[in-house]
Amino acid sequence: MTMTQVHIDTPVQPDAPAPHKMTARNVDVFYGSKQAIKDVSIDVDMDRVTAFIGPSGCGKSTFLRTLNRMNDTVSSARVTGDIRLDGDDIYSPQMDVVQLRARVGMVFQKPNPFPKSIYENVAYGPRIHGLAAARGEMDEIVEGSLKRAGLWEEVKDRLSDSGTALSGGQQQRLCIARAIAVDPEVILMDEPCSALDPIATAKIEELIHELRGRYAIVIVTHNMQQAARVSQRTAFFHLGTLVEYGETSEIFTNPREVRTKDYITGRYG
C-alpha cells in the first residue's frame, strides 16, 4: 500500500515587535533634598515620536535630561532607577558619557549655534569624534546633515558665514544639523519651537516628520496642538510624576486619567 505524504504548512510566525530603543524604569531625580521626578517608567521607540507634555515645572524637561545624562552637569542632581539604551545601562560607570551624548543628541529650547561658520558648526562634532578622515568626507557629512535638517538650499552658498547670523528658525535647524552630524540614534528636543514664529515652527515640525524612523525622537512641548501633530506617543507629566502615557490619539481624545483630561481641556496649566 502506498503511503501518501501530507505536507502541512508551518504557520508563519508574526514578526516580533522591535525592542525599545530606550527604556526607563522607576526613575527618580533629586536636586539636593528636593525630589523633581518620582518613579517614572517609559519607553522610547525608533518608529514613533514621543512627546512629553505638562504644565511648567512638572518635570518633563528634567526627565528628558536624564536620557543623555545632562543632569550630570548639575552638582546637586542625583538620579536613581534604570535607564537603558539598546539594553545598556547609561548610568553605568563603564558608560562613556561623551559617546553617550553623541548617540543621544540634544536640541535645546533656545537655538545655540557656536560662534563659528555654518560649516564649522556642523563639522564640529564629526571632527572631535574622528568621523571624517579627509576634507571631502567632512564636506559630505556637512552637506548631508544640512540637507536632512532642511537647511542646505538656504545656506549652501554661504557656508563660511557665521551661524549666529541666521534667523531664529534657521539657527534651530542648524542646531538640528549639528546634532545629526555625529549620526546619533536618539534626538531629544526640549521645546525646540518655543522661541520661533509660526512659519519657522511649521518647518521644524515638518522636519520632525521627515526624521522619524531614522532616529528615535523625544520632544518636550507646552503646545498641545504641536504634540498632537508631530507625535505618535504622548506622556503627560504633573508635579514630577508620569500621570499617563500612551498613544497620542488616545491621550487627546479619550484620556484615562482625570488630571490628563483637565489639562487637555484647559482647566489648569
Rank of each mutant, 00 (worst) to 15 (best):
M95Y: 04
V12L: 14
F52I: 01
P126S: 09
R84F: 01
E210H: 13
R214S: 13
F108W: 02
R84Q: 10
A216M: 13
K110P: 04
V79Q: 07
I83A: 06
V122E: 02
V230H: 05
S33L: 05
H129C: 03
T265Q: 13
H20T: 14
E247I: 08
T248C: 08
N121R: 09
N112K: 11
E247Y: 01
V122D: 00
R48L: 14
F108G: 01
I251C: 00
H129N: 09
A123M: 04
G169F: 01
K203R: 13
V49I: 15
G57H: 03
Q5E: 14
V98Y: 05
T164C: 09
D72N: 13
K34F: 13
Q99H: 09
R259E: 01
A228R: 15
A18Q: 14
G168S: 13
L207Y: 07
K147F: 09
R233C: 10
T248E: 04
A228K: 15
V29S: 04
T234A: 14
S92K: 10
D190E: 10
Q232H: 12
I53N: 00
P93L: 12
R178T: 10
A179E: 04
D47R: 14
A24E: 06
V186H: 06
H20F: 10
D262Y: 10
V79A: 06
P93K: 15
F52W: 01
Q13N: 11
S162I: 09
K147M: 13
P184K: 11
M22P: 01
V6G: 07
A102S: 03
H7D: 15
T248H: 04
G32F: 06
K147S: 04
M224H: 01
S61K: 07
S117P: 03
G57M: 06
